[in-house]
Amino acid sequence: MSHAENPRGAERSARRPRQLFRNLNAKFASLPMILTALVVFVGGTAWTVAHSFTKSRLLPKWDFVGFDQYERLWNSNRWMISVENLMIYGVCSLVLTMVLGFTLAALLDRKIRFESAFRTIFLYPFALSFIVTGLAWQWILNPDFGLQGVVRGWGWESFTFDPLNNPDIVIFGVLIAGLWQGTGFVMVIMLAGLRGIDEDIWKASRVDGIGVAKTYVRVIIPMMRPVFVTALVIIASGIIKLYDLVVAQTNGGPGISSEVPAKYVINYMFQAQNLGQGFAASTMMLLSVIIVLVPWAYLEFGGKKRG
């Protein structure tokens, strides 16, 4: 064929390059991601799960003991309190941040003046760490000098609001601080969702004579389903991680009445020197995330493939 008379580099460009060496720079650049994903995320998690079936104490040891650690875990009073606290905190926090976050976003979306000032105020706690949040609310809820003391000082001597020293309601004291810190974030997501809704929807609902409240409930909220789901997943995965706030505000007290699972894990791994318990507890945390995540992933991504 006359193509044989190619002058320049035709030999090379005529042949399909080896798959491995194609795009080599991109592969090189992705190496940190690949290592992180495989070694730390997958490898680390698998290691921990595997070692939760051993009787590791001070050091990780490959002594298989089946479900012993889990049995001990679920028989532990401290773990039960931790789980119960997380359930209460989680349910309240989910419902309240969603309701309050959406309400605030809807109020801000009503074409008000000073919108950005209000938004700035509602969101600033989210910039602060849980440690700062916990310490600030620890002070405000101080029984002698805080809110309770002030109200009593006004003459209402019998006023009692001392959640941080009452084992029955201490988790709600933590909840107040958590809501203060996190609601602004939900509001921002909701506001972005509301802004993403076509202005024409509002015009159409006005033409159809549907009231504002009804439009929200019947039209806007159903349209924002994906936003709600995303917010829900982000908040839920944040709730399971609840740790710093408790450490700063109550350090699990009074007694062990405000313990949470994440704190249980850290305490057993690094203070009680009972690694096996820590691994088992953290595997339970992982399990709860999977329970939250899998249905969501199925709805989000499984549905798309079928559609």
Partner: peptide, 16 residues
Amino acid sequence: QIFIKGDNVTWAEPSD
């Protein structure tokens, strides 16, 4: 295959 000016450029870089 793709030829430009008689050269087989099927796997050549765009700039080449």
